[in-house]
Design a protein around this nucleic acid. Structure first.
Length: 880
DNA sequence: GAGTCCCGCCATGAG
DNA sequence: CTCATGGCGGGACTC
């Protein structure tokens, strides 16, 4: 009965969870514990928190129940439902999250009553009250990748009441989330939800900052002892100014007038950032609490008294709990001589494709894109200040800009804090860099623009190639579409920022060489990519037409959301996404994938899915049969975990061949569309075009509606003609297959990879496997959907992870990897080559020469693409 | 007994 | 003074 009621409520109140407390309350029952209720300030007392548990649980069981389907639908439609479902999940201990997903449903049913009873009976165990769980619940309420259009505001009171906890707890969560820019404070008692759009950027920033700050330490990190030792040493040596401190402090001064240093300035937030930095800097990606505590304490104080230490550790636990629920870290134990120590391992994205470097100055020289680039360039804010010089990806800024916008627009009261936050990151970085930053943010375009304010998701705008941001970079991905309507919006909004066309399925590369891309991306992209709601809808329609059934279906569910999304406030869309994404957090938990594989670079959620897929593909690649795996994935829910498993295997399989990726992916994906790159000759002098062989041109063109540039699909080139040319197949991306919303990142990477390869006519494929197959006239035929070629070809998506390793290959270093016909032997000029997202790639000094240049190139790519797009756009239509 | 971390007192600041 | 924040650490709960 409860279930039904719940459903009803959900149905009735589809729009938002957040706002209606009364409504929400029922849901929230989660609070098993009466305790909380009492505490709560009359928030949702009506409901007995006690029993609620059951309710929560119930929802899930459905799979088998007749209502299950209904539920599913409902959940899709209504956020509330979703929330509940999530809650259910939440109930499990965080640790279990990994397991969860699929099993849950079953378990739930079975367990349900009994379990529930237990719950009820057993007073809420401590675990159930844990911050981590609470955080999961909290996160479940919001989409990982909210649409740009939807602004989600979080009312602390509401949330607290809904979740049945004290506000104080919410502060803990929010502060940590804030440190990662997942949320930002808008006003008193109000935060705005940004989601993970900027996460990768934020992490990147933190990584860089961390390297500056802790790099030394972490270098030796193998052993805590060593680390500690180092730390001590360093401390003694550098202690002086305590760079660390400055970092923290800096933020405020820069951004805000010094005025706002309230209260140690949110030590929790800062601590959180530092803590994350440690992970990012750590080679092992494992950080023990004591070390972290010591390091953090030391920074602050020379004296480390025990109590202080204990307190610090407690705080770290708090932070760790939140990070765990975010899927960024997981608890592990490290055994030392001393014994077994609690520690946490970073399982989030490790590599950030678009490191600041990329962003950093794109050297003017490399940029081929002139005017058009502007737009792209605009996206990046380049700050040159003395030493510092880094460009920010708009996305990165997005959060901040948003804040700024808010301030301006809403003129909300909390200026100082907001500013602070905004500045924090930069400050940190700056501090780390030692430079006095000229407010980088200031540079950021956003703030000034009212538009931004209007559009909550500036980030979306940058569909650009950056591998970093999965969501951002690749608009193509379904997820991107769904999740990032903003992209379209961004295109619109952004004045000059043509950038990537988020939706655009094709990428243009400067190099003259031709590439074949195989992938289902386009379709997906087309359909899904559409950023704006309207666009999205249109595209979706188009896409649907074009999209292969399988893909379509998957998406279809998602798509559905799209159309509806606009109506509901933020919630709906978010919720929609959340459905997909919601899993992510848990899935994220997955240990291996993210942490180790660079692929993860992109945001965890999306990344996971994408990355995972890719990896799996790799393995598959070897065997033509691969498709199976692909299917699995596709069929698989969004859950990363499963993928993880596969991924693990994958990882083992192949090291890092970029080529491989390409080929693999394609192969794996059953119906992926194939794309062809056409050299510049086509019309764009310097640019190459990608065509989707498979897709019907019409479909593509349709897409154009929304994004003219995107549409430009390119000329269709007869496969036969191409046959003679070296082709690079890049799996457009797996995303389509994967239900996972955020595959975009992967996609982008792929492209980049392809581009690199493209420079050289050489055919890139995984060492052993793919190449041969691909090379020949790949399935040029557009119409051949799932040709073997596909399998062979592109694996780019995967590249993300592999990229690093691969990079060398791409570089033209004939690593074993390059077995293909033409190894990189063909001199790949850096320019031509498109560095993978991974910096590592480029870093190779010798060949590359100027690392910076490489980076620039990367940036250029995007630019190029954007520019091209722009051109296209211009010709075809004016987006705005 | 160590590890966790919940809970809520109370300081801090803004209004 | 009130209210929003959030530092902090006692001590309970887990393992």
């Amino acid at each position: 009965k409860r279930k039904y009621t719940v459903l009803r409520t959900a149905l009735i109140l589809p729009s938002e969870n957040i706002f209606d407390r009364s409504r929400m309350a029922p849901k929230t029952p989660i609070k098993n514990e009466p305790i909380d209720l009492s505490k709560q300030k009359g928030c949702t007392p009506e409901r007995n928190p006690i029993t609620p548990v059951k309710i929560i649980d119930r929802p899930q069981p459905d799979p088998w129940t007749p209502t299950a389907n209904l539920k599913m639908l409902v959940s899709a439609a209504s956020p509330d439902m979703r929330d509940r479902e999530k809650k259910k999940e939440l109930f499990r201990p965080i640790e279990n999250s990994e397991q969860s997903d699929t099993p849950d449903s079953l378990q739930c049913d079975i367990v349900d009553d009994s379990m529930v009873d237990d719950f009820e009976k057993q007073r809420p165990s401590r675990k159930q009250k844990s911050l981590g769980l609470l955080c999961q619940k909290f996160l479940a309420r919001y989409p990982n990748y909210p649409l740009s259009t939807e602004k989600t505001t979080i009312s602390l009171d509401e949330v607290a009441s809904i979740l049945g906890v004290e506000r104080r707890r919410i502060y803990d969560i929010v502060n940590v989330l804030e440190s990662l820019h997942l949320v930002s404070r808008v006003a008193k008692n109000q935060y705005s939800w940004h989601g993970r759009h900027n996460l990768s950027q934020t992490l990147k920033m933190l990584q860089e900052a961390g390297e500056l700050q802790y790099g030394e330490l972490m270098t030796f990190q193998h052993r805590e002892q060593d680390l500690e030792y180092k730390f001590e040493e360093r401390k003694k040596e550098t202690i002086p100014q305590s760079q660390d401190r400055p970092l923290l402090d800096f933020s405020e001064p820069d951004c805000i007038s010094a005025s706002a240093h309230s209260r140690k300035d949110k030590s929790l937030r800062i601590m959180s950032q530092k803590f994350v930095m440690l992970f990012l800097v750590s080679k092992t990606k494992i950080v023990t609490l004591d070390i972290a505590a010591k390091i953090l304490i030391e920074e602050t104080q020379d004296t480390v008294d025990h109590s202080k230490f204990k307190t610090k550790v407690r705080r770290l636990y708090d932070i760790a709990n939140v990070l765990t629920s975010l899927g960024l870290i997981k608890k592990v134990h490290v055994t030392e001589e001393r014994g077994r120590k609690p520690a946490f391992k970073w399982i989030g994205p490790v590599e950030f494709p678009g490191k600041t470097d990329e962003l950093r100055g794109h050297s003017p020289t490399s940029d081929p894109l002139p005017g058009t680039q502007r737009g792209a360039c605009a996206q990046y804010q380049t700050c040159t200040t003395g030493k510092q010089r880094f460009t920010r990806h708009a996305s990165f800024n997005s959060a901040q800009p948003c804040e700024a916008a808010r301030r301006k627009v809403s003129s909300e009261p909390n200026s100082p804090r907001q500013e602070r936050q905004a500045c924090e990151m930069e400050t940190i970085l700056n501090a780390a860099k030692n430079s006095n930053t000229t407010s980088p943010f200031s540079l950021a375009p956003v703030p000034g623009d009212s538009d931004f304010c209007v559009n909550p998701l500036p980030q979306a705008v940058f569909p650009v190639v950056q591998a970093d941001m999965p969501s951002f970079s690749l608009p193509i991905g379904i997820s991107s579409q769904a999740s990032h309507p903003s992209t379209t919006a961004s295109s619109k909004t952004e004045n000059g920022k043509p950038t990537l066309v988020p939706s655009q399925p094709f990428l243009c590369f400067p190099s003259s060489s031709l590439f074949m891309l195989c992938g289902g991306l386009q379709e997906k992209n087309l359909s899904e990519t559409p950023p704006t709601a309207g666009d999205m809808a249109n595209r979706s329609a188009e896409a649907q037409a074009a999209v292969p059934p399988a893909a379509y279906q998957k998406r279809s569910s998602h798509k559905c959301s799209l159309p509806s999304a606009p109506v509901d406030d933020e919630e709906p869309a978010a919720k929609k996404q959340s459905l997909e994404q919601s899993d992510l957090p848990l899935s994220l938990v997955v240990p291996k994938m993210p942490s180790e594989s660079p692929e993860a670079e992109s945001s965890p959620g999306s990344d996971c899915s994408s990355a995972v897929h890719l990896e799996t593909y790799r393995l598959d690649l070897t065997s033509p049969a691969a498709p199976e795996t692909a299917n699995k994935e596709s069929t698989k829910p969004l859950v990363c975990q499963e993928q993880e498993k596969q991924s693990q295997n994958k990882d083992v399989d192949e090291p890092p061949a970029v080529n491989e990726h390409i080929s693999k992916e394609n192969a794996n994906q059953p119906f992926q569309p194939q794309y062809l790159y056409v050299q510049p000759t086509a019309g764009l002098s310097s640019f190459n075009f990608l065509f989707s062989t498979n897709q019907a041109p019409g479909a593509i063109s349709l897409a154009a509606n929304q994004l003219p540039s995107l549409n430009v699909p390119c000329v269709m080139v007869p496969s036969a003609a191409l046959a003679s040319f070296p082709l690079v197949c890049a799996p457009s991306f797996t995303s389509p297959l994967s239900p996972v919303p955020d595959a975009s990142a992967a996609v982008s990477t792929n492209f980049s990879m392809s581009s690199l390869a493209s420079t050289t006519p050489v055919f890139i494929s995984a060492p052993a496997v793919v190449t041969p197959k691909v090379s020949p006239t790949p399935s040029v035929d557009p119409q051949q959907p799932a040709h073997p070629t596909l399998h062979l070809s592109p694996v780019l998506t995967r590249s993300c992870s592999a990229v690093k390793v691969d990079s060398p290959v791409c570089m033209g270093h004939p690593v074993t990897l390059l077995k293909l016909q033409q190894p990189s032997s063909a001199p790949l000029t850096p320019k031509n080559i498109r560095p993978a997202h991974h910096e590592t790639f480029f870093k190779t000094p010798g060949s590359l020469g100027d690392p910076v240049a490489w980076k620039k190139n990367e940036g250029n790519q995007t630019r190029n693409a954007s520019s091209v797009q722009r051109r296209l756009e211009i010709s075809s239509t004016s987006p705005d």
